[in-house]
């Protein structure tokens, strides 16, 4: 009986469930692709039929309607700069916090950990207020212009720092102490020692934080909606939401699915290409 359940029934059922799940995911992705080539009536009337004649123009109409080119650029820039800044700010801090024997180190680590439990909601209202004030302030007094994308970037970074510091501190602690000694003998300055000695050794942990943040930033929706509402400032999720809205009101379902394909397929290709490396990188630092 024990063997029946533990060795046969449970594993078999789970295996079947996993395969069903896999088939569903793949079918969904394929189905979106098929839908994107139909005209609007067919999308609705015959959701599971193949398109009679492929409607490639859905893609051009979606691309234009959603201003995807600007959105794609914004998403890439926000993600790259954001994730880069997060790691650049958090890694040195995590390193000294993990290593130092100063009395302030431990409470500071807890202070950063506290940030983990502050949900986005708590600072949503202040962010909206600061966004407006910063814009007015910069425009009136300083540069004469301002771009809300910078505000979005700054807050995305600030909000991600606690988690990055928290994970990296734990990771840096696990690194052997001997590694700095080489650098000490070398007589290198702290920054050079950090970049040349610590960073290479800590790469798995840094990659994890980087990948996790890239995924988070790439899918950022709520902050983007509130801070950067204009079409040319939008990131991809906000642009897709805009397209979704616009296509609903004009019943252009083919165009909507084309928009989804434009957004999703490149990510899938990237994922298939980098696949294991993304997942490994994402988890390497946490699972130590």
């Amino acid at each position: 009986m024990r063997r029946l359940i533990g060795d046969i029934l449970l594993p078999r059922v789970t295996a079947v469930a996993l395969w069903v799940w896999v088939v569903f995911n793949l079918a969904l992705v394929g189905w979106v692709g098929i839908q994107s080539l139909k005209d609007s009536g067919d999308v609705w009337l015959h959701p599971f039929a193949l398109p009679e004649t492929p409607r490639w123009d859905n893609f051009s109409s979606a691309w234009q309607a959603a201003e995807f080119s600007a959105a794609a650029l914004n998403s890439v820039l926000l993600t790259v700069f954001g994730a880069g800044l997060i790691v650049a700010i958090s890694a040195p801090a995590a390193y000294v916090l993990a290593r130092s024997s100063r009395r302030v180190a431990a409470p500071t680590i807890s202070y950063f950990a506290m940030g983990l439990s502050i949900p986005l909601q708590t600072i949503l209202v202040p962010i909206v207020v600061i966004k407006l004030s910063v814009y007015t302030f910069m425009e009136d007094w300083v540069t004469g212009w301002w771009d809300n994308r910078i505000t979005l970037l700054i807050f995305q970074v600030a909000l991600s720092v606690p988690f990055a510091v928290f994970v990296l501190t734990g990771y840096m602690r696990s690194l052997p102490h001997e590694i700095e000694e080489a650098a000490e003998i070398d007589g290198a300055g702290p920054l050079r020692a950090f970049v040349q000695v610590i960073v290479p050794v800590a790469r798995p942990g840094l990659t994890t934080v980087l990948v996790l943040n890239v995924m988070g930033l790439w899918n950022e929706t709520l902050l983007a909606l509130l801070i950067t509402p204009l079409p040319e400032e939008r990131n991809l999720p906000a642009a897709l939401l805009g397209l979704y809205s616009s296509m609903q009101y004009s019943s252009d379902w083919g165009g909507m699915f084309a928009g989804i394909v434009i957004l999703v397929y490149p990510m899938i290709v990237l994922y298939v290409w980098l696949g294991r490396r993304i997942v490994d990188g994402m988890t390497a630092g946490i699972s130590r």
């Binding site: 007015t136 425009e139 909606l225 509130l226 509402p229 809205s245």
Partner: peptide, 20 residues
Amino acid sequence: LKFVGRTGNENLNAEMASGQ
């Protein structure tokens, strides 16, 4: 001209109130 659509004008009122 900015065609923002139904979603995206969420804090237009707040923006205008603050002079933007």
